[in-house]
């Protein structure tokens, strides 16, 4: 069963995470859903796929009034990110969903209509939440071609979508990274294969390094905190990505 845990709380400003579902069907990748709330409004990031909706909704509604969730933030268009949209809309038809503008005509396949989606421009920007603003950070090609992260300067938290994601075995499936070197082995294969552009990686790393980040919160796996955030950024900047190409062209492996 997933559970709602608090990552940051200052007055009415909170970050909570719905994480770890040991009972999930084994065919499904586990996902982290983050609930950002301020005042009387809340935003849910990457609410997940259809199959995990019951456990996500159960965990959220057990500790939070789900009617306060006014916004959904979809980092990109994948089914594990947003295919539960039709169910969230069934609960609250007035929900609005932020996503890259390039997915505007793709996402309604999951549910919703033209009025549901707020298309984010490539350069990102700011989005309001209960009287404050959150920063939409471009992360295109990491791994989706229309991809965004969400930065909260007040809480110093970066929701980083698939960047930082790790496919950890159950015995190392803690909420926070405890041993960076041990943890990052479970992130390496995913990042090499799913991140398609070295230029995009370096651009993101440069911008991320300039932000004040206490918690780097990926959609899969453990949360990076403190010094592990910069360790991750440095590790990512040095990683060779795009290994899918080398899988079909072995001669490139030798040339590299």
């Amino acid at each position: 069963m997933k559970r709602l845990e608090t990552l940051y709380s200052q007055g009415s400003h909170q970050w909570q995470v719905i994480a770890r579902d040991p009972e999930r069907a084994t065919a499904l990748i586990d996902t982290n859903e983050y609930l950002v709330s301020h005042g009387n409004e809340a935003m849910l990031t990457d609410p997940g796929g259809l199959e995990i909706f019951p456990v996500v909704f159960s965990a959220l509604a057990a500790g939070f009034d789900p009617r306060r969730v006014k916004w959904i933030f979809a980092s990109h268009q994948d089914p594990d990110v947003i295919s539960s949209l039709s169910l969230w809309l069934e609960f609250n038809p007035a929900l609005r969903c932020y996503a890259s503008r390039i997915w505007g005509s793709f996402l309604p396949h999951y549910g919703g209509d033209g009025g549901t989606f707020i298309g984010l421009p490539d350069e990102g920007g700011k989005i309001p939440l209960g009287g404050i603003e959150l920063d939409v950070v471009p992360a295109h090609y990491l791994h989706s071609s229309g991809n965004f992260h969400l930065y909260d300067a007040r809480a110093r938290i970066l929701f980083s979508g698939d960047v930082g994601a790790a496919l950890t075995p159950p015995e190392e499936d803690a909420l926070f990274v405890a041993d960076f070197d041990r943890h990052i082995r479970h992130a390496a294969g995913f990042h090499r294969r799913f991140m398609g552009s070295k230029a995009a990686v370096l651009d993101w790393c440069e911008r991320a390094a300039a932000m004040e980040i206490d918690l780097l919160c990926p959609q899969h796996g453990s949360v990076y905190q403190g010094a592990d955030v910069m360790r991750f950024i440095n590790w990512f900047a040095e990683l060779e990505v795009g290994s899918g190409l080398r899988a079909v062209r072995p001669e490139l492996q030798q040339a590299a």
Binding site: P54, V55, F57, A59, A61, A62, F64, D65, L87
Partner: peptide, 27 residues
């Protein structure tokens, strides 16, 4: 079929508090 599928997902929501907060009987 879509209604039935959505109904199944909402039925799988667990916990009395979650069901009440989520206004599930109405849905």
């Amino acid at each position: 079929q879509r209604r039935q599928r959505n109904h199944d997902y909402f039925q799988r929501v667990e916990g009395e508090r979650a069901r009440a907060n989520g206004n599930l009987p109405d849905i």
